Simulated scan of single mutants.
Amino acid sequence: MAKHRAVMITGVNTLSDKLKENVTMDLVKKVVEENTIEMKRKMKRNANFKGHYIKVKGGKLKKIEPTGETRSSIEEKISRNGLTGVVSPKTEYAAYLEYGTRFMSAQPFVKPSYDSQKRIFLDDMKKLVN
């Protein structure tokens, strides 16, 4: 006759708590990822520039048409193990478009996107907490 051995499992409560924590963190990471992607969409949609004028010889104004380079350079990056999302344009002159210069007016596309998505992100995080 075979002997039966008792198996004792310890730490079930700790394991259960850890699983609950991980599920919660997975949900947080999903919210971060979804909001980062949506902010990128908004920023690309808002990056609809009208161009600007420069003075050329003789004091005449020449219109510089937008190339679309800043819009196409907008990228998102998820870091810190999924807890941080960053969306940014990669052209060197993106700040001139956002804030303007003494020669051209501001054409904001980053801040309006951020302000809009920030509210949605906070609402999504509140839903996770409640």
Score class of each variant (00 low, 15 high):
Glu76Pro: 04
Ser79Thr: 13
Glu38Thr: 00
Ala47Glu: 08
Ala95Tyr: 09
Arg45His: 07
Ile78Asn: 10
Val28Lys: 15
Ala106Val: 01
Val31Cys: 10
Lys29Asp: 06
Ala106Gly: 02
Arg71Gly: 03
Thr67Gln: 05
Tyr93Phe: 02
Glu38Gln: 13
Glu92Ser: 12
Pro66Met: 02
Met25Thr: 05
Met39Gly: 06
Asn46Gly: 01
Thr36Lys: 15
Glu34Arg: 15
Gln107Asn: 09
Ser105Gln: 14
Tyr53Leu: 08
Thr70Met: 12
Ala95Ile: 13
Arg41Tyr: 03
Lys42Cys: 00
Gly82Asn: 05
Glu75Phe: 05
Ser79Ile: 08
Thr91Pro: 15
Leu83Gln: 08
Lys60Leu: 09
Ile64Ser: 03
Arg80Asn: 14
Glu69Ala: 11
Gly85Trp: 12
Gly85Pro: 14
Thr84Gln: 14
Lys60Gly: 04
Arg41Cys: 01
Lys57Ser: 13
Ser79Cys: 06
Lys30Leu: 10
Lys62Glu: 08
Asn48Ser: 14
Thr70Leu: 12
Arg102Leu: 09
Glu65Gln: 12
Arg102Ser: 13
Glu65Thr: 03
Ala95Glu: 10
Gln107Phe: 05
Lys29His: 08
Lys29Leu: 11
Ile37Ser: 10
Lys50Met: 07
Ser73Gly: 04
Ile64Phe: 02
Glu34Gly: 04
Lys60Trp: 02
Gly82Ser: 04
Ser72Pro: 03
Glu92Leu: 14
Thr84Phe: 06
Lys40Met: 12
Asp26Ser: 13
Ile37Tyr: 10
Asn48Ile: 02
Thr101Pro: 14
Met104Phe: 10
Asn46Ser: 02
Ile64Val: 14
Phe103Ala: 03
Val28Glu: 14
Phe49Met: 07
Ser79Glu: 15
Glu98Phe: 09
Thr84His: 06
Tyr99Val: 00
Val56Lys: 15
Lys90Ala: 04
Lys44Tyr: 02
Lys55Trp: 04
Asn46Val: 01
Lys63Gly: 00
Glu38His: 04
Glu75Trp: 04
Glu76Thr: 00
Glu92Val: 09
Arg45Ser: 06
Glu65Cys: 01
Pro108Ser: 11
Thr67Arg: 07
Gly58Ala: 09
Ala106Trp: 04
Ser72Ala: 08
Ser72Trp: 06
Ser72His: 07
Lys40Arg: 14
Lys55Thr: 09
Lys42Glu: 05
Thr67Met: 06
Thr84Tyr: 07
Pro108Glu: 12
Ile37Trp: 04
Leu27Trp: 11
Gly82Cys: 06
Lys29Gly: 09
Glu34Ala: 13
Ile37Arg: 15
Ser73His: 09
Pro108Ile: 07
